[in-house]
Amino acid sequence: MNYRSLLFIPGNNPGMLQSSDILGADGIIIDLEDAVALTEKDAARILVREYLTTFEPRKGVFIRINPLDSPYFYDDLDVIKDLKITGIVLPKAGVEPMTKLEEYLDEHDLDLEVIPLVETAMGLETALEIVQVSDRIIGLFLGAEDLTLDLGAKRTKESKEIEYARSRIIAAAKAFGIQAFDTPFTDTDDIEGLRIDTKNAKDLGMTGKTAISPRHVDEINKAFSPTEEEIDYALRVVEGVKAANEKGLGAFSLDGKMIDAPIIKRALNLLKTSGDYKEEYDELLK
């Protein structure tokens, strides 16, 4: 499944938990890490467990556990191993934490997806290696707040300081055909700022974005959904390919532009996201 939006839900907040399935996000990340005070780690784990065992599990439930270098890493995993969830978000991702997580998941034979949260300089520079640790990884998630702290960079709304990090994450993710999730936009009231930030991330190649406010979900979903024009264009490309194939033509042009394999592939990908993909299209790239 392709997640346009992943919404953080504070793990120790019953009101948010019980509403987490109706806030419009493609997936949720129940947070046991930063959103939970050190003194409430135990209570949050228990609350999350009760919630997830009481209610029909929805699709796309991830839990952000505490990092390997905290005292809670294995406590969190011990609770999670019995829960019906989609996967785990691993904070302060690096080769070692990912390896330890993979070992635990193998040991307990858990069929869970993993999203490494890259938020350190080392994590960023070893992103390619992290992804290679496990087949469970479905995407890389850039955490810009901690990363900029680690880099000694000034965090700004314009986010020029994370352009490199974004591109690096995107490249590592695309190299392995997995998703690239952008850092959340932290000003919950600034919807226009969110719009610009999301567009910047998408234009660089991010495939989805995380959110810390439910009010950001719609905007993110919209940004990562193809527009009517894009869908129309993709359908025209596909029709063009079909016609060209029938005529035995190798290449063709649309609106005066040569249509080559990358354009066709992009059109097909877009139709997959928009839900307009048909099985017969499988033949087109052969």
Binding site: P14, Q18, D42, A43, I46, L47, E50, Y51, T54
Partner: peptide
């Protein structure tokens, strides 16, 4: 106005402590 899952969770946490 807690729902049952919350009441159970809080009681369990409290006992544990």
């Amino acid at each position: 106005g807690a729902l049952d899952f919350t009441i159970k969770a809080r009681v369990r946490a409290c006992v544990q402590r």
